Computed example of a mutant assay.
Amino acid sequence: MKPVRLKLLSALLMFSVFLVGCSGETEEVVEKPAAVHIEDGDECHVCGMAITRFPGPKGEVITEKEQTVHKFCSTRDMFAWSLQPENTMRKHTLYVHDMSQTEWESPDDTALIDAREAVYVVGSKRKGAMGQTLASFSTESAAHDFMMEHGGEILAFDAITLEHLNTEMPAGEMHGDMRH
């Protein structure tokens, strides 16, 4: 009778270890890669233009799987790339300049912020490398101040579509609400 009890006890112990192992699921936290400095001579991943030669906010995308850095001469080009169907489902880390912390003519890379958390002014009078660009800010207040001076419309990251990039919005149009 002892061998049967021993086998049953052993099976129960194994099952208990299995249950404990299953109940302790932990979510793997992947650290976000740091922004990469935009160097003189870097070219835009979309249009090939020299990034630092032009005014306005720039963008960069770091692909999660390959850890490849794509740099863009404007936020408009960054969105044009990231909104393409083949890129929307992939995981990326995106950065843009906080234009409340740096000069329009020559953005400083110490002002790069998470693009998904930024607030954008679309359709302003200010031009970037490719003409109209999306002015990026860390706060809605800063975006609102910019919009009041330069026109445009305030949008959150998730509200930006390819239509915003493909159509010229009237620069005098002003909307004070945050769209999601």
Rank of each mutant, 00 (worst) to 15 (best):
G123D: 03
E105W: 08
L83F: 06
C44I: 05
G176N: 10
M147T: 03
L83R: 07
R126S: 13
F15K: 04
V46M: 12
E153S: 10
I154F: 06
L155G: 00
F18S: 09
I160N: 01
K2S: 14
T26A: 13
H144E: 12
A115Q: 01
F72K: 02
K91S: 12
E140G: 13
Q132G: 14
S136I: 02
S106K: 14
V69A: 03
E140M: 09
A171T: 14
V4L: 14
L94I: 08
T63K: 15
D145I: 09
M1P: 11
H45Q: 11
E117G: 11
F146L: 01
H144Q: 13
R179T: 15
L19V: 13
S16W: 06
S23M: 14
V17C: 13
E39S: 10
M78C: 04
H45G: 04
D177Y: 10
D108P: 01
S16G: 13
S100W: 05
L13D: 05
M1S: 15
T167R: 13
F18H: 01
S124D: 03
E64V: 10
P57T: 00
F72N: 05
D40W: 08
L162E: 14
K65V: 10
T26N: 11
T75F: 04
C22Y: 14
V61R: 10
K7H: 11
T93N: 09
V4I: 15
K32S: 09
F15H: 07
F79R: 05
E31S: 12
G131E: 00
N166Y: 11
E103Q: 11
K32T: 12
A135W: 00
H97Q: 03
S23K: 12
E43G: 07
E28W: 10
D177E: 15
Q132L: 10
A34H: 06
L165P: 03
V20T: 09
Q132T: 11
I62D: 02
N166D: 11
M99K: 02
Y95L: 05
H180P: 05
M178I: 14
L165T: 04
H97K: 02
E153R: 13
L8E: 08
M178G: 09
D158C: 06
M169V: 14
M99D: 02
V69K: 01
V36H: 02
V119Q: 04
T26W: 15
V121C: 04
K127G: 08
S141L: 11
A143G: 03
D108T: 00
K2E: 15
R5M: 14
H164A: 01
K7R: 15
V122G: 00
H180N: 11
S16L: 13
A11G: 07
P55G: 04
I38C: 00
H180F: 13
M49C: 04
G131V: 01
